[in-house]
Amino acid sequence: MRRESLINVLLAAGLLGFPLWAYVMNEPFLITLSTRVAILALAGVGLNIALGLGGLVSLGHAAFFGIGGYAMGILASHAQSYAPLMESPFLIEGTKSMPIIWLVAIIASGLAALMIGGLSLRTSGVYFIMITLAFGQMFFYFSISWPAYGGEDGLSIYVRNGFPGLNTLDPIQFFLICYVLLVAVLFFANRLAQSPFGLALNAARQNAMRVETVGITPYQLRLTGFVISGMITGLAGALFADLNRFVSPSMFSWQTSGEIMIFVILGGTARLFGPVAGAAVFIALEHILGGLSEFWHIYLGVLLLGIVLFARGGIIGTLAGHEVRHD
């Protein structure tokens, strides 16, 4: 087995084992922390498709995270107040069913990614970063000034949404839902990276001219990658809102975009399990150092600087070493 595959298996096992241990020890808070890791890792896996595979430095992924969150918030709030979303031309009611909420979150964030990507991908480099940031901020200010769904105060959902056959209020069961989704998406992301599409998108990141010269348009590749990336981050947003039973404009904030990017860079850009390692370390630091000092971000900053300067492959890259993807 390749060294990186071994590390990936250990990470996956650790992320499953830790909350199970916490469950046995009756430590629900640690289960919730693990759930956060799984959900934030999922958001990172989404961004990693754009950033790692496509080389698209998006500083606006909070838009998709927030859209996923608000998809959950809006549908669930209508369900809990028994007020339909709209009555004409046809009736749309709210729902408390997770699968439907996920589907809506994925579609809504996919459409948003199509719109944002469609415009932003006409630029590149620092302009792309700035335009994605600007779109993210547009969603942020829109959510603040939209009173129907809580505006600045956000929106509380009193009971966690349901999943057929499971008690989602039980922390370990909700964790397992998130974990299974994360593993499924990781499986998909792995397939995607090795697919013909992944080969082409990855080549377009390295040398756009090469891709054009063989008759493939980089813009179409990148837009497709960006939409897939946004959909996954949107799904993570819906889960995150369900974890907290609360959505607020802070999900749309540029700090959220930054944090998702930190998971990816910390763990290892373009590494399959990079966001998992990154989110785990981030949450661990937040939990441990956050208890010592309010200013724990200073230590995070030092760590991040060290990674960027000395270990470009992130945590996974440092542990697994430099490897060529063999055929």
Binding site: S195, P196, A200, G215, I216
Partner: peptide, 13 residues
């Protein structure tokens, strides 16, 4: 792949 034209295939390796 470029010559073949079926770029948008997401699953098979």
């Amino acid at each position: 792949l470029g010559a073949q034209g079926h770029v948008f295939r997401f699953f098979g390796a």
